[in-house]
């Protein structure tokens, strides 16, 4: 009886653990199946490098370059915001903050990470966009710059808490050795601790980027939505996620447009997959370098 129960539990948990594999397979298969009609009927390179996105006109244009560019521009902008702020926060928390400051800051950062993205979107659309529009005198505040700013703020908690973890994984002996050799605190930090945690910090940044690439609500509300390759960062853009979210509901199911939207989803999936693989490779190298099993 006891043996039977143990076997049962083992099976239950095995099934639960492999459920995510099942979901992943299902999602990938669906993405492929639904985008296949489009991939078969349209030249992939013409699509990816096409300049015009007019999916509902006749004849339709499915140029995805503006959408892909927009995702890259907005993500790059978000990195410019979230790397200094996120890594800076992590360094402060790790090196300078007193116990009481840590006690306040860490939960606050976690709350920031827990705010639903639609709230960020509202905040961006109602407060930040008009402010930037008046401040810089641009025709509209709904542009790549505002979207980058909001996305950067959103990704900051991810970067900060993961980078802080990476810093705390640096063995105490490294720091002690450095200080014992006469290095001051700044030298210890820049020459020993940060390089040792470097790969961990890179992983944090890459996962932050992953969050920014896949974010939908904020870019839908704040980026402006114009499917053009922007001349400047203050032009409205239309990232891939916003395109999918905005067009999926109204399109004719089974049409070329429907299939094209799934193709965008497939491209997005591969981009985030690549980001995750890179993060994994870097963090593996980090473990080897430190000679830790972690």
């Amino acid at each position: 009886m006891r043996h039977f129960r143990e076997t049962l539990y083992r099976w239950i948990f095995t099934v639960l653990a492999f459920a995510s594999l099942l979901f992943l397979t299902g999602i990938v298969l669906t993405l492929f199946r639904e985008s296949l009609p489009f991939l078969v009927s349209h030249d992939f390179f013409d699509t990816v490098f096409g300049l015009y996105w007019y999916p509902t006109y006749d004849p339709a244009d499915f140029g995805m370059l503006p959408l892909i560019t927009a995702s890259f521009v907005v993500t790059l902008g978000a990195m410019v915001v979230c790397i200094p702020v996120g890594v800076g926060t992590a360094l402060f928390l790790h090196e300078l903050a007193s116990a009481s400051q840590r006690a306040v800051l860490k939960p606050l950062i976690e709350i920031l990470a827990g705010i639903p993205s639609i709230i960020y979107g509202f905040f961006g659309m109602i407060i930040v966009a008009p402010f930037i529009q008046n401040l810089l005198g641009v025709p509209t505040g709904l542009n790549a710059f505002t979207a980058s700013l909001i996305l950067g703020i959103m990704a900051t908690p991810t970067v900060a808490s993961l980078a802080e973890d990476a810093l705390s994984f640096v063995p105490r002996s490294f720091r002690e050795a450095s200080l014992a050799l006469g290095a001051n605190r700044w030298q210890t930090l820049t020459r020993v601790v940060v390089p040792a945690a470097g790969s961990g910090i890179s992983t944090a940044i890459i996962l932050g980027i992953g969050r920014a690439v896949g974010e939908t609500m904020v870019v839908l509300m704040v980026a402006g939505g114009a499917a053009v390759i922007p001349d400047s960062i203050f032009d409205p853009v239309r990232p891939m996620t916003a395109t999918i979210a905005a067009e999926m509901g109204e399109t004719v199911m089974g049409s070329a447009h429907y299939s094209a939207i799934f193709t965008i989803g497939l491209i997005l999936f591969f981009i985030t997959l690549a980001i995750n693989i890179v993060a994994e490779i870097i963090s593996r190298r980090f473990r080897l370098k430190l000679g830790l099993g972690r």
Partner: peptide, 26 residues
């Protein structure tokens, strides 16, 4: 049936059109 200029701002709902037009003078 002519194409809208590609750099037109595209918004997701009627409500957002309201907000955006109210905010931008041009």
């Amino acid at each position: 049936g002519l194409r809208v200029r590609p750099d037109a701002l595209v918004t997701a709902s009627n409500q957002v059109v309201n907000t955006t037009v109210a905010q931008a003078p041009g």
